[in-house]
Amino acid sequence: MEDGVKKFLYVNRKAPYGTIYALEALEVVLIGAAFDQDVSLAFLDDGVFQLTKGQDTKEIGVKNFSPTFRALGDYEVTKLYVEKESLDERGLTADDLQDITYEDEDDDWAEKPSILIVSRSEMADVMAGQDVILSF
């Protein structure tokens, strides 16, 4: 680990539009990305709904921020852990989620997936391996 670089995990557990948590979390991630830390995002419980495809908010008059997740790679945020049990409980599979990728600067800009589907126990390990955890 480089000097001064800490592992930050943003934990997303809320659905996207019913409350402001999901949008606020994303804004904090984008702003925080300027500080060159080792950032990961975790999506569990209703947080997995944030990443679903096909969101169209025109008729409810709020901003559809789901496309913004696809910009995270530009901000060097490339690890989006999604809990499989949370998907299962909600009748969702990985196919219901957007394709989110990043270009790997160290591998000739190869396009790689940012979403990592993990089990609940693997998610627990991800959480236990962090320096700082921010909950939304």
Binding site: P16, T52, G54, I60
Partner: peptide, 10 residues
């Protein structure tokens, strides 16, 4: 329906 659409539920 508008709330369904917003959340991408077909």
């Amino acid at each position: 329906a508008p709330d369904l659409k917003a959340r991408g539920i077909d």
